[in-house]
Amino acid sequence: MGAPLIADLADPALGSAPGWPLVLYFHHVNALVDHYTALSPDQFRRGLDTVLGTVGPALDPAAVGPGFRPPDHPSVLFTFDDGYRDNLQVAAPLLAEFGVKALLFCVTGELDAADRLSEPERAALPPRRSFLTWEEAERFAGLGHVLSAHTVRHPKLPELGGNEAAEEVTASLRRVRERTGEPVRTFAYPYGLIPERPPVPAGLLAFGTVKSPPASWEHRPLHIRRTYLPSGEVERWAGLATGWREQWFGSQ
Rank of each mutant, 00 (worst) to 15 (best):
L111V: 11
R197N: 14
R116F: 07
E168P: 08
A123K: 12
T180C: 10
V107K: 06
S118P: 08
E164W: 03
G181K: 01
E97S: 11
G181Q: 03
L193Q: 15
F105G: 01
L117D: 02
F187E: 00
V100K: 06
H150G: 10
E167Q: 15
R153K: 12
F98P: 07
E182G: 09
A141D: 01
R197F: 10
T108V: 05
V100P: 04
V100M: 04
R179D: 04
V146K: 02
D115S: 11
R177P: 03
V200K: 04
L103C: 07
G109C: 06
S172N: 03
P190A: 01
V184S: 06
A102G: 05
A171S: 13
H154A: 10
G99M: 09
E97W: 01
R185S: 12
P195V: 09
C106P: 07
T151F: 00
F131R: 04
G142R: 05
T108P: 06
F187L: 10
I194V: 14
W134I: 05
E164F: 07
F105A: 07
V152D: 08
R122L: 14
A202T: 11
V146T: 11
S118K: 08
A137L: 03
R153N: 15
E168H: 02
H150I: 06
P127Y: 00
V107N: 07
A96Q: 11
A202C: 11
V169I: 06
E119Q: 12
L193G: 13
T186W: 09
V176K: 06
